[in-house]
Nucleic acid binder design. Structure first.
Lengths: 269, 269
DNA sequence: TGGTGGGAATTGTAGGAATGAATCTCATGA
DNA sequence: TCATGAGATTCATTCCTACAATTCCCACCA
C-alpha cells in the first residue's frame, strides 16, 4: 500500500497536470489540505515537499505554494564554423535584454593550478612534470543580480604562457576579439571539438551560488577543443536547467532552428 | 543565521567532498548523528534529506545511508553521416553487455494521435484539418529489469500512412534495417536536423517508471529531422541523468572522443 | 558446514505541539 | 488618496512520541 503522503502528492500532482491548478495559481494552504485529507500537518508537508523536490511548486513562507512555470532560454551550443564562441555572448546579451528586460554583466577571474588526473590527460599534460599547469579562466555571467551561468575554461600552460599574446589569457579581463580568434592568431586555430552534456542536482554551494530553488537540476556542458591534434582548451559550463536548454543545429539552419526550438519545451508532461 | 539542519547538511556534504566519507562508504547512523550534533531525529533527517535530494547519498531502510557514486554511460548523440540512428543501438547493446553485464531488451508500442499545438507546427500539420495525425512509436529500452531510456518518435501521417513501406512504422516491431534507412527508401532521406537538450526533475510517475531514487534528474533530448524542407520525424528521448551523458563530436573523431569522454564526469565537484 | 530464525539495529511513516518568521489584509489616520 | 501599523494568515523550524518495515548479525540447530 502506498504511504499516505505519496497518495496526497500523487493527487496534487494530478491536479497540476490536468490543469486544475494552473501555472502560477496557488495550491490550497496546508491547513486546508490538512482538513481536506484529514491528516496531520506533517504528512501534508511531506506531500508538498515531494512536489517541491520535483520542481513543480514554489513555496513561500507567509504566502503559500504556487504552481511553477518554466521558460527556459534556448542556447546555441553547436560549434559554428568561423564564429567565435564569444561572439555568441553578444547575441545572448541581446536576447536577455529582450526576454528578461535586464542587462547582463560578467565577472572574470583567472586561476593557475597544477594539472592533475583527467584534466591533465585531456590537455596532454604530464602531471609528473613540474611544468604541468593549467590556466583557468572563470567567467560568471549574471542577468540582473542572479548568476545565470558559470563557465570554466582550462588552457594548457604552454599555450597561455608561451607567448606575449597568450598573456592576454592570464588577464582577468574580457577579450574583445574573442578567445577563439586570439588562439587562432597564436597559431592554434580551432579545427575540431567534442561536447559532453549531462545534468546533476546542485550541491548546497551551487544552490546558493545560482540562487536555485529546490527541484532544479544543473545542466553541465563540457567542450574539448583542438587545433589539429593539439588540445587547446577544455571548457565546462554550468547552467540552471530551469532557465537553459542547449541547441545543436547544422550551420545553415541555426536561425530557423533557434526560432522553432524556443517553442519546444522539455517541461511538457 | 542558518537553520540547524542546513548547518549539519553542509557539514556532512563537506565530509563527502573532502573524502572523509568515500563513495560507497556508510554515513553515521541517525542515532549517532543525533548524539553527535545533540539535536532531534527530525533535524537529522532533514539534513540527510537535503543530501538525498541532491543525489549525494542513498538511504536504505534497515541498513543506513551510503555515499552515492556515479558512472554515467556516454552516448553518441551527434547525427552521423550515413549511419542510421538505430545502428547505434547495436553498439549501445554491446557496451551495456560489457559495462553492466546485462542483456538489454526493448519494448515497442505504436499510438496514433491527433496533432496539436507545438507538435503539429513542428511537423507542418494543420491541426484544424481532420488529417492532422501523428504516428507515435514508443520504444522503451531496458537494461536488465530497469527502464534505461524511453524514446518517443513522432511521424506525420502522410509519411507513416502514405505508402506500403510506411506501414512498417505502424507495426509495433523492431525495424531491422533502421527507420532512417526505411525513410530514405520511401523518398525521405534525412538531410538535416536539430537537437534540443535539457533536464528536469522527474514526476512521480517518471520516478516509478524509471525506478529513480531521489535527487536524480531526467535528461531530455529532442531531435527534429528533415528531408529537404519536409519534417519527417520528431524524437523525444528521456534518460535518467545518473546513467546517461550525451556526446556531440565530429564524424572523424567520434571514436577517440567517446573513449576520452568516458573519463569526463560531470559529477566532479 | 550450512541453513534458519530471532532479536537488535536502522530507517520509514504518522501523529502532536510550540514558537518563529514572512506575508497579507484591512482598518485607521494623515 | 495613500501610507502605516496591528493582527491574522501561512509557512519554517524544532522538539517529542509511537509504531511499522526492512535489514543485519549471530547464535543455534540439523
Amino acid at each position: 500500500m502506498e504511504p499516505r503522503h505519496l497518495e496526497i502528492a500523487h493527487d496534487l500532482m494530478e491536479g497540476i497536470d490536468e490543469g486544475r491548478y494552473a501555472p502560477g495559481a496557488p495550491l490550497p494552504t496546508e491547513d486546508q489540505l490538512m482538513s481536506f485529507y484529514s491528516t496531520s500537518r506533517n504528512t501534508i508537508r511531506r506531500a508538498l515537499q515531494e512536489l517541491s523536490n520535483r520542481g513543480r511548486i514554489d513555496t513561500k513562507q507567509g504566502s503559500g505554494s504556487t504552481v511553477r512555470q518554466y521558460r527556459p532560454t534556448t542556447h546555441l551550443a553547436s560549434p559554428v564554423e568561423g564564429e567565435a564562441d564569444d561572439e555568441r555572448y553578444t547575441r545572448y546579451v541581446e536576447r536577455m535584454k529582450e526576454e528578461q528586460g535586464v542587462e547582463p554583466t560578467q565577472k572574470l577571474r583567472v586561476i593557475v593550478e597544477a594539472a592533475t588526473g583527467t584534466l591533465a590527460a585531456l590537455l596532454h599534460l604530464d602531471p609528473s612534470e613540474t611544468e604541468g599547469f593549467v590556466v583557468i579562466r572563470r567567467c560568471d555571467r549574471y542577468v540582473g543580480p542572479r548568476l545565470w551561468q558559470r563557465q570554466l575554461s582550462y588552457y594548457p600552460d604552454h599555450i597561455a604562457m608561451g607567448s606575449s599574446e597568450g598573456a592576454q589569457l592570464m588577464q582577468p579581463e574580457d577579450i574583445p576579439q574573442g578567445t577563439r580568434t586570439l588562439l587562432a592568431k597564436m597559431g592554434y586555430p580551432q579545427t575540431k571539438s567534442w561536447d559532453v552534456v549531462g545534468a546533476r542536482m546542485p550541491s548546497l554551494k551551487d544552490s546558493t551560488l545560482f540562487g536555485l530553488g529546490p527541484g532544479i537540476p544543473l545542466l553541465v556542458h563540457e567542450r574539448m577543443a583542438y587545433s589539429g591534434d593539439t588540445p587547446i582548451r577544455f571548457t565546462k559550463t554550468f547552467m540552471p536547467a530551469d532557465r537553459h536548454q542547449l541547441l545543436y543545429a547544422d550551420g545553415e539552419m541555426t536561425a530557423d532552428a533557434l526560432q522553432m526550438a524556443t517553442d519546444v519545451n522539455i517541461y511538457d508532461h
